[in-house]
């Protein structure tokens, strides 16, 4: 890494974003019929900020993303009936399984949040990035006043 001294001696040539000076936008995406993984991949790029030329790895330069119609997210093939989500209750023999389809009916936010979380960096910054994701099962959401921009997937 270049030292402070060297940086002040001549102009730093590569732009470095500063936390707190990042202008964050709001984006909205309709999940209806979009396959879960493709949706999550596109959302993850926006949350990480890799869609903007100011992207800086150690700073969160991403935008906020609102997801609507999460309960209508697409699952291709037989994944709705056959693919299982596991969680461990902490008790012996407490490994529970539920199909993706059932999770989508019962708690659609969990399905999308899980998929996106696993596509983000597994570190402190990744956890901060995830907080900018807001998922809603229906078309209603409380971020109308942010005037979110429609995002293509």
């Amino acid at each position: 890494m270049r030292t402070e001294h060297a940086a002040s001696a001549r102009r730093r040539e590569t732009f470095v974003a500063k936390a707190g000076q990042v202008e964050r936008q709001w984006k909205i995406v309709d999940a209806e019929g979009v396959p879960l993984g493709r949706l999550a991949a596109d959302i993850a790029v926006v949350l990480m900020g890799k869609h903007r030329p100011e992207y800086t790895p150690h700073v969160d330069t991403g935008d906020n993303v609102v997801v609507i119609n999460a309960s209508k997210v697409g699952l291709t093939g037989t994944k709705a009936d056959n693919k299982l989500k596991y969680h461990y209750t902490g008790y012996p023999g407490g490994l529970k399984a539920e199909t993706f389809g059932k999770v989508r009916d019962r708690k659609p936010e969990a399905l999308i949040e899980d998929a996106v979380r696993r596509m983000l960096p597994k570190n402190r910054l990744g956890r901060v990035m995830l907080k900018k994701l807001k998922v809603f099962p229906g078309t209603e959401h409380p971020y109308e006043s942010q005037q979110p921009e429609t995002m293509k997937v």
């Binding site: 590569t14 869609h51 030329p53 100011e54 992207y55």
Partner: peptide, 24 residues
């Protein structure tokens, strides 16, 4: 070691940024 990897890291950062600008 990192004075050497620094050069590679920066190049890959520039490429990521150019990719974003192109996609836009």
């Amino acid at each position: 070691r990192d004075r050497r990897t620094f050069k590679r890291d920066m190049r890959s950062l520039w490429i990521t940024r150019i990719t974003a600008a192109c996609k836009m």
